[in-house]
């Protein structure tokens, strides 16, 4: 019972979130000025319920959380390692692995962060032209842009896999037991999750476009 309530709450929050993110896409100018069609909200709600968006959204949410946590952990790791490097140097202890460990954690942190930023649509883009377009055209353009990201990331994923397999057995300079593969694998993971995030944006936008058409 309690779980169900939580679940409902979660749905409600997600809907609000989607609404917030996409309101510029789906509302026309009058709406943006404060006049919101109830039917729009209703439409979104129905679309969400009907099309089983929920498990997908939940999965995306979990994925984002995992990546964000990983990114922050790696950030903490390289911060700590650099402090260790300074301390040990002044104690006269030679610790040789610090630089490599710091560099590779940094790469992981940045790639995980960059993927999360795709989900949050935070990567900087110019919206001058987009803002000038009207609803449907604007939604179509967003769909096109998402497709571009997906296509690009498919290439990065595939070529990234090629790099991973070619160089998997290369070793770290300071810790020969560690394989370079552990570093390279961050590329396909980043690209793969970027594909997932962009796909979910794409589906959302297609749905919203449909809702828009229904309500017109």
């Amino acid at each position: 019972m309690k779980l169900q309530k939580k679940w409902k709450q979660w749905i409600y929050c997600r809907i609000l979130e989607i609404w917030q993110k996409n309101k510029n896409n789906i509302l026309d100018r009058t709406a943006e000025d404060g006049f919101i069609h109830a039917c729009h909200l209703n439409g979104i709600f129905q679309a969400l319920r009907k099309e089983e968006v929920l498990p997908v959204k939940r999965f995306i949410g979990i994925l984002e959380k995992i990546q964000l946590t990983l990114g922050v952990l790696f950030l903490v790791v390289f911060f700590t390692v650099i402090i260790i490097q300074i301390i040990t140097r002044y104690l006269g202890i030679a610790v040789i692995w610090t630089e490599e460990v710091a560099n590779y954690s940094f790469i992981w942190a940045i790639f995980m962060g960059a993927a999360v930023m795709v989900n949050r649509r935070e990567h900087f883009n110019f919206d001058l032209f987009q803002r000038k377009l009207q609803n449907k055209k604007k939604a179509s353009l967003t769909i096109f842009n998402d497709s571009v990201l997906i296509l690009f990331n498919i290439f990065i994923f595939l070529y990234g896999m090629q790099v991973v397999t070619e160089f998997w057995n290369y070793t770290w300079a300071s810790i020969p037991e560690m394989k370079m593969g552990y570093v390279w694998i961050s590329i396909p993971i980043m690209a793969g999750s970027m594909i997932i995030y962009s796909l979910s944006h794409l589906m959302e936008n297609i749905k919203l476009l449909k809702v828009r058409e229904v309500n017109e």
Binding site: N169, Y170, T171, W172, A173, M180
Partner: peptide
Amino acid sequence: PGFMTQTG
């Protein structure tokens, strides 16, 4: 040589 060793 040093860098070659990293290739295994």
